[in-house]
Design a protein around this nucleic acid. Structure first.
Length: 488
RNA sequence: GCCCCCAUCGUCUAGUGGCCUAGGACGCUGGCCUUUCAAGCCGGUAACAUGGAUUCGAAUUCCAUUGGGGGCGCCA
């Protein structure tokens, strides 16, 4: 094993990167890092018509967000560049011409219209679709004639009519295809651009790619690739076809399945470390119990052999749970920093900006363990920032209490905490806990009433901590407001 | 239709002939803790697709069936 490990992620800017694409990128990256090899990004921009504006940017954003740094590729360069296929056209043309000269490929002048009617006919007769090889044995004269008519040909591979093509896949094992079931596929389009098949083989060889780790949807075209390597005289790389990720309805992931682009997960308040961990476990496992595995441990322990062969369904509930785990692991400063953009975005404009960072930090300390997605921070902490609380007075009245008792509880509480010099958790508890008993109430009743009074909600962080963060002035004002509400 | 891949709880998975009356996690659920919620802790629910074969013994090997997925483009 003297060949250095070189793995490429080859995205196409024809769509936004969904979790399936990104999971492939992650596995490519992790394997390269694990093996101490090189991770390469190569942009497969050979379909000019289908290029989606912004898609490439989203792909890079996604990779960067997840920390999947590349050693060679766009923006960083490298000695095997350029890393955009659209800038390597001469290489493909040369390879195609060589294949034609060798007799392994031929020019095809069939029009798209003819191919379309041919396919329609095949569908009608229920025979396998595929090019009927009309131009496979065109004489040089016929070819010249077509050329003269101004028809720009495509280049097709001259598929062997019999025999088998087989290869070993790290994940699938030995796979064999009958050559007769594969048609003469296109290598070079009439617009001068190569197809994926040609371009990827030429580049994987030129870039010294050692391992092709890609989605299972490529498994069926691998025999074509093997044959191309052979025809070109290139040694094939190691192949590993990853199981695909399915939507909840068991079909291939598509736009119908909600948050499609990886960047949507960022916007939905997921942490990149969560995504890396979760995606890694979608198709790979360390052992029979490890769920939380940090990036460095993932890199250290990763192996292609432990990748599953089964397609997996993306389970968003588990992702949410895992995000909560990662959020709770963050230091308070780290959490505050990550939550801030979501707070700025989620809090209503009516709340004065800039936010007091010191205060925000105290608030975040109380909600951190209750957050599962960063998008929740604004809602969970809104009452800490609002000037006046809007809630129904009836909410103040706890179970087995009446209006009079509630009013009294509020009034006495106000009296007892007003003189407090220190508005700290311990001091508040020292006063209020005995008060419950004095009033003949359960702590749940008294604290519940005060919770609604100070937060406007029945569900909130622990009472004393909440009061301490709100501060004396605001707390007393809110209790007074509650008394006023009860009095009406 | 043809080709290829796959098949363990609802979902993600462990399991490579005996350690499996199948383990872990999410979810759901009962309880504990508790000022609500969350977190945490303890417990429960739930799976080897089916039929053959090999073997003393099969979730694990082989075959078939069924089911699911992918591919069959001048897309990648």
């Amino acid at each position: 094993m003297s060949e250095p490990v070189r793995v490429r992620y080859a995205p196409s800017p024809t769509g936004f990167p969904h979790v399936g694409n990104i999971r492939t990128a992650l596995f490519d990256w992790v394997y390269a890092r694990h093996a101490g090899g090189t991770f390469i990004v190569r942009v497969e921009d050979t379909d000019v018509a289908r290029t989606v504006p912004g898609a490439l940017g989203a792909i890079f954003d996604g990779l960067r967000w997840l920390g999947l740094d590349w050693d060679e590729g766009p923006e960083v360069g490298g000695e095997y560049g350029p890393y955009f296929q659209s800038q390597r056209l001469a290489l493909y043309k040369e390879a195609a011409e060589r294949l034609v000269a060798q007799g392994d490929a031929y020019y095809c002048f069939c029009s798209p219209e003819r191919l379309e009617t041919m396919r329609a006919e095949q569908a009608r007769r229920k025979v396998p679709p595929g090019y009927d090889r009309l131009c496979r044995n065109l004489s040089p004269e016929d070819a010249r004639e077509c050329q003269a008519k101004g028809i720009t040909p495509v280049v097709r591979f001259r598929m062997p009519l019999k025999g088998q093509t087989e290869f070993d896949d790290i994940i699938r094992g030995h796979v064999r295809f009958e050559n007769s079931t594969i048609d003469d596929f296109v290598l070079m389009k009439s617009d001068g651009y190569p197809t994926y098949h040609l371009a990827s083989i030429v580049d994987d060889h030129a870039m010294r790619i050692s391992h092709v780790i890609r989605g299972e949807e490529w498994l069926s075209s691998t025999p074509r690739h093997i044959l191309l390597y052979r025809a070109l005289g290139y040694p094939p790389p190691v192949f590993a076809h990853l199981p695909i990720i399915l939507g909840p309805d068991r079909s291939k992931l598509s736009k119908r399945h909600g948050a499609t682009s990886i960047t949507d997960y960022r916007d939905d308040g997921f942490l990149p470390e969560t995504m890396v961990n979760f995606l890694a476990l979608l198709g790979w496992s360390l052992d029979d119990k490890t769920e939380i595995i940090p990036r460095d441990a993932l890199v250290k322990n990763f192996s292609l052999e432990r990748i599953s062969q089964t397609a997996a369904i993306f389970n968003r509930e588990k992702l949410t749970w895992m995000n909560g785990v990662y959020i709770r692991q963050l230091s308070l400063d780290e959490f505050t920093q990550r939550a801030l953009p979501f707070l700025e975005k989620g809090l209503p404009d009516s709340i004065k900006r800039p936010l007091d960072l010191d205060y925000v930090r105290k608030v975040m300390a109380l909600i951190q363990e209750r957050v599962r997605q960063l998008t929740e921070v604004a809602e969970l902490s809104l009452f800490f920032f609002e000037e006046r609380l809007a809630y129904e007075p009836a909410m103040l009245i706890e179970k087995k209490m009446d209006a009079a008792g509630t009013l009294k509880a509020l009034q006495v509480s106000l009296e007892r905490i007003s003189p407090l010099a220190s508005f700290e958790t311990g001091a508040l508890e020292a006063v209020l806990r005995p008060l419950a008993e004095e009033l003949g109430l359960k702590t749940g009743q008294l604290f519940g009433t005060l919770r609604v009074a100070t937060t406007g909600r029945a569900v909130a962080p622990p009472l004393f901590e909440t009061m301490a963060v709100l501060g004396k002035e605001r707390t007393l004002a809110r209790i007074k407001a509650a008394i006023y509400k009860m009095g009406k």
